[in-house]
Design a protein around this nucleic acid. Sequence first.
RNA 1: CGGGACGUGGCGCAGUUUGGUAGCGCGCAGCGUUCGGGACGCUGAGGUCGCGGGUUCAAAUCCCGCCGUCCCGACCA
Length: 569
Amino acid sequence: MRMSRLFARTLRDDPSEAEAPSHRLLLRAAYIRQVMAGVYTMLPLGMRTMRKIERIVREEMDGSGAQEIRMPIILPAEPWKVTGRWQAYGEIMFKLVDRHGRELGLGPTHEEVVTPLVAGELPSYRDLPVNLYQIEWKYRDEYRPRFGLLRVREFLMKDAYSFDRDEEGLHASYDTMLQAYRRVFDRCGLRYVIVEADPGTIGGGANHEFMANADVGEDLYVACPNGDYLADLEAATPRPPEPADTTALEPLTEVSTPSAATIDAVSKLLGRPASNMLKCILFDVGGRAVAVLVPGDREVNETKLARRFFPALVRRFEDADFASLGLVKGYVGPQGLPDEIMVLADHSVRGGKDWVTGANKSEHHVTGANAERDFRVDEYADLVQIREGDPCPACGQPLRIERSIVVGHIYQIGTTYSEPLKATFVDEDGTERPYVMGCYGLGITRTIAAAVEQNHDEHGITWPRALAPFEVVVIVANRDDEQVTAEGERIYLELASLGVEVLLDDRDESAGVKFADADLMGFPVQLVVGRRGVDAGTVDLKLRATGARSTAPLQGGGQAAADLLAAAP
RNA sequence: CGGGACGUGGCGCAGUUUGGUAGCGCGCAGCGUUCGGGACGCUGAGGUCGCGGGUUCAAAUCCCGCCGUCCCGACCA
């Protein structure tokens, strides 16, 4: 490719809307252009990098026995209503209506399409397992698109779905995908960790996230310094506390707490630490009231709560909800709550006693409240938000919090979709059983951004070879010199014949502009042909990632660039 | 949706406080000079000042409404 023909105008100044490094550089280096919030056009350079990731993904998926299909972007609403996700995805799903008044959606993911597809084609256990994947645009009307390609409303994703007879088969399929993902991200040159994660609106059981480390990452995970434990912040489970000694308990006593409707205020008023307060938060779960108890110094992890009740919708009580049950916001406690309110407590509540909590009466709290004696707990569960410094569940060392970008997420979803969608096969014993499914997402466009976040410096992008849109750029430093131009052409053809993806900067620009653009666009190897070198019989080479410079003979300069490239990361 | 900021040629910005008929740098086109780290000179093209309404002799500037974009929080690849 000749740069004089390449549709790529670089920007000298940072566009004012771009903040994150990947966003800034992808715009400046002419990889992407914005169309509207969270929607981008991929320019030729961006396309080439995107295709490279797609290719790596295809090779690893095909090599793992998955088969590529293509499902539509535009989908009927019905199966989504059956699984409950028409509601659960809510406003995130782009919804539209066709001329007949039929409700349609733009696919945010494709379980509701692939599951009936397989059910219609494969009624026998003999045909299992099967794993189908596609690389397709996904649509999510995000609350807040941001950071260029990192969080967008239209993105390219590889999604795969495995169908097995039983749990054992699922585990094998899942493990195959986990290994395939490792190879994909290794080949992309990403620095990443694999963490235990929350399944979100997909639902189901065990699942892992592939997290690329990055300063602008929106996703936090906890890591044990000993390497014993890695988990998504939302999914992380703190080590359960030792149960409190309940041999001597305070009596339950009501105290007046005028205008103290917050943990902080009550804590100050009564001179008790927040950790001795029992926070009682009310939720509406699909129309049913649920009280969640956590110590006063902890937060309820609403993601875990949503997971406990998935696919029912969980929302915090609003003023009207308190009023309808005769409760006073800020003074709610678990003792004496009506029977129809389910009471859930975090495991950490077992570690405390003689709680201070609301008296269910305006301006009053109680002290000395204890589980069983004074209030019922219907279920203990893991419901708190983990914090930096919490003990590792494996070894007890304080956990650290790290920042990252989720580039892949794999799930064991079991029969979460096959059951409601009645997607069954006939098993060996003649009975119908729902498929045991796994699903596997990998963000292609997000991987582009994550790679730039990890590979850039003050001059521009420093691509790993596998993702660079071109591997070598041949810079003709003196555009007016026919001999220099001819040597540049010759080396360009030499590199092409060696199978190297090469770009010839034949533009009528000064050398400085060419160097700056080459650095900005991030090609791994730069080869400079100039007057000086041609006279001396040499070319100059530069490895972009390290800045290391060297010279090579003019004759065979192409081979030297190819050798340097082969040694590049 | 809640909080904050900003919308002026392709990009970055000034002008808005104090209304007077739009400017700078980069980029773009032409000519000439330059030619190994974002060259220089001359000439030129390019703007419904986000949109709609209002006030005024006169609005980029003042008032009202709307839209868009970005940043901080609630969803996810």
